[in-house]
Design a protein around this nucleic acid. Structure first.
Lengths: 337, 337
DNA sequence: CTGAAAGCGCTAACAG
DNA sequence: CTGTTAGCGCTTTCAG
């Protein structure tokens, strides 16, 4: 079948040990021998077999990243940041998508464990705790991404979502809006809960009406559209004058539904709209969407840094928890009007 | 380090061969033994080592997919289709991003070759021919995606981009638009060349002015915005009344720049805009964008089908070439005005 | 500086 | 039905 070191060695007239040395520690081999070996490799089209190498080594140099939704540009940006950083450490990034499903998440984790990846970056689903515990029990380094871990022994990189929710709410409150809705879900996701909690706190402090919470089955364009149908009626009835979305996909979907049809409402005149993540498409929407920006690249690259640092710790050492502060980017969808 | 079959065998009081049988051919093992082995696996937290298994097997059951831009929802949709289909065959999909760079593409291909993936689905960069030839010489099955291969011995799944370009052009020509621009690049990409060629052919046949071709450095939002700055002036000067974009990211970027500022132009009154791919965000743009739809999921899943079929062929057999027909989805950005 | 040999964890014969 | 054993391709001592 494949070409192996043995054949290379034979053609070059050396032993397999020497071929291995040429490949991994060229400085210990005579230049002329190196040359001969390289010629043989070229001639035979030899390609190293990672499975064998990894079997020998005991683990791979691959890092896995599991995100909640590959269709969300927020996560592809995080992935890009992680991939670049991983390359910097000479590691490969394996990308997987849980689609917010704990089952799919578990399946991917199993697969990665069998592959003996050197670590896992996980944007966890709601029910991830158990899977994570199992992984760590087996000694697989884990970094939680886009979510602070309550557990001090698990490293994490996150954005202060409570603060982000507060930021969004205070922005619309400052314009005198008082009937504020928060749209997102499932509420089992921490991102959703925290952003909602932040918004609710701001609303309470301002003495406005209680936050209207609209639950959605997921953080997608479609979910946003569906919620928008319901909210359009509320806006027309005057029971809602500002909407905070749990992410930009929801916000974009909401906007489409709010503007649509003969009974469409005006943004921001009738209702202000604020998204979350500040993906590139938020600025390109029908009415450009105000959004809470997260440092997407930095989240990914920092996660890789933490994972690499993880290698040097024992299970019970304290872990690092990086928390970024979000930032409000104001656009037309919430312009005072 | 890790727990191996040997330890499982010992605890269960059987031999390693039996453990392997329990795992891979349970029907050949007495139920009670199976039970004992499973208990031991559970107790020890045994996880199969894929590297060893794969080394033994000679190749993995992983399929690789390399796309041009993970940030483009078109490709994530293709990837989703491929992943689902791969799972259906009991295979895992490895996802990688070349970012339109032949260097990155080559690096990923090398990596996948070392991993002995069972095949590669490739959305090729402009300079991929050489890499592909090398892969195939080593016996790695390859399916070209989103691009018909001139070579009959390489399987491919594609969309008729010439036809798609023609569709877009005929649509705006039918509205009496005669000064049509095509925006996209780099022109080394076949997608760009074919779509442009189709548009040009339609324009010629209609006897309109020659197609104005605006080259961009990539198929991204940013590239679209930059091109939009230039085109806005042309529209105002009356030298352009319709724009065909090589994809939706370009179209969305274009639209942002065209509408922006005090000298912004109106869409579709001053200029019609047509995109390509029909990603979800096209419908959510400031002015919803008319687009040429491709069957994204089907492209991904068919690619996997072809790759699997590939397994049974010898190098010189003819390969299958699936070509989908695109479909025009008309929205406000090109509404007769 | 180079060669010989052991062994990583697994599976697939082949014997029992 | 179960046990024994020979490698898969590689790296890494340990001798030469």
């Amino acid at each position: 079948m494949g070409v192996s070191v043995k054949q290379v060695a034979q053609l070059a007239g050396v032993s397999v040990g020497t071929v291995s040395n040429v490949l991994n520690r060229p400085d210990t081999v005579r230049p002329e021998t190196i040359h001969r070996v390289h010629d043989a490799i070229e001639a035979l089209g030899y390609v190293r077999n990672d499975a064998a190498r990894q079997l020998r080594a005991g683990q791979s140099n691959q890092i896995a990243l599991i995100v909640l939704d590959m269709g969300n540009p927020f996560f592809t940006d995080v992935a890009r940041g992680a991939e670049d950083r991983a390359a910097h450490y000479g590691r490969t990034l394996l990308l997987a998508n849980s689609d917010e499903s704990a089952t799919r998440e578990a399946a991917h984790l199993d697969q990665f464990e069998r592959q003996r990846v050197s670590g896992v970056l996980l944007v966890p689903t709601a029910d991830a705790a158990e899977h994570v515990a199992r992984l760590r029990a087996r000694g697989v380094p884990v970094v939680l991404v886009d979510r602070g871990s309550g557990d001090h022994t698990i490293a994490s990189v996150a954005v202060d979502d409570v603060s982000g929710g507060r930021l969004a709410a205070m922005h619309v409150l400052a314009q005198g809006r008082e009937r504020i809705a928060f749209v997102g879900g499932p509420s089992s996701l921490h991102q959703v809960r925290d952003r909602c909690a932040g918004a609710r706190a701001a609303v309470r402090e301002a003495g406005a009406d209680d936050l209207i919470v609209v639950d959605t089955p997921g953080l997608t364009l479609d979910a946003g559209r569906e919620a928008g149908e319901r909210l359009r009626a509320m806006v027309r009835a005057g029971t809602c004058d500002a909407i905070l979305a749990a992410n930009d996909l929801i916000a974009i979907g909401l906007q489409q539904a709010l503007l649509a049809g003969p009974d469409g409402v005006r943004i921001p005149e009738d209702v202000a709209l604020v998204g979350y993540d500040d993906i590139a498409f938020a600025a390109a929407a029908v009415v450009p969407i105000t959004s809470v920006r997260q440092p997407r690249d930095a989240i990914g690259s920092t996660a890789v840094d933490l994972l690499v640092a993880e290698g040097e710790k024992s299970t019970n050492d304290a872990r690092q928890h990086v928390v970024y502060q979000p930032e409000l980017v104001v656009r037309a969808s919430s312009q005072p009007g």
